[in-house]
Amino acid sequence: MKRAGKENLRGWLTVGPIILYYAIFGLIPLGIVFYYSTLKEKGLFGGTTFVGFGNFVTIFTNPRYYNLLITTALISVFTIGLSLIFGLVLAKLMTSSIRGKTFYRTVYYIPVVVSMAIVSQIVNVWLSPTTGTINNILVSLGHERVIWRDSVFWMYFWLIVICTWKGLGATVILFVAGMAAIPPDIYEAADIDGAGGVVKFFSITLPNLRAMFVFVLITSIIGAFNIFEPVQLITGGEPDGATKVVLFQIYDESFQNGNFGMGSALSVVVLLILMALTMLNMRFGQQKD
């Protein structure tokens, strides 16, 4: 009995403060974001009015807002598609019996650990309209200079290239780990049946990677909602707001326009989408066991 009491005391003296801290810095903000999503603010000192679900109605009816979700979705579809295709192929190559596998795995992961902001600044040097490196090359080849920021296509192109480049290494490492976990005797059995490499890839490797696939997919979507630095530093949301993503607008709305109500409503939309995806991930991840 005394022992059980001691265990309870130890347990709660440790966990209690962590839960208290979580309540203050995690749950209170969660309450605030839902409360503020029902308010409209006119600048920092303009006062607030209660608008109920008004902000959400605006988000889903005004193209200025629902386009943010479409833009985020577009960028993530291309980024995730490219990452999955390249990731699977590269992981397959990196698990084959070649020398230097560790070297390749290391190299491909390097972009993951560097600052997205500083990568964006390097790209800015390349894209500068007057003195940028790519324009230097174009001019030396006899082409016209390209004003990248004026072109929706090129801004999307660069955002997708940067995000794919930056995240690919993580996808590859996860697929490598997933492929390493597939029991080799399945492949041996297929070898005896005379199955070729492509057949083995589609009938053994891919089905066995399902849980990892879902995990990669969902963490990539979560990652897409976190895209901020390249939009802020390279595109600025231009041209004409075409490259504004959700997080950029949350920032813009709150700190440039002072409308924390709309910023909060957008945050709630992100929150609900990502929570749903995380739950989906848990379901699929567990079915594998």
């Binding site: 995690g26 309450g31 974001v33 979560i222």
Partner: peptide
């Protein structure tokens, strides 16, 4: 872990 950090940026600022 289910609450994404980006969604708490604004309320944490207000807090």
């Amino acid at each position: 872990m289910m609450v994404p950090g980006v969604a708490l940026l604004i309320p944490q600022y207000l807090m």
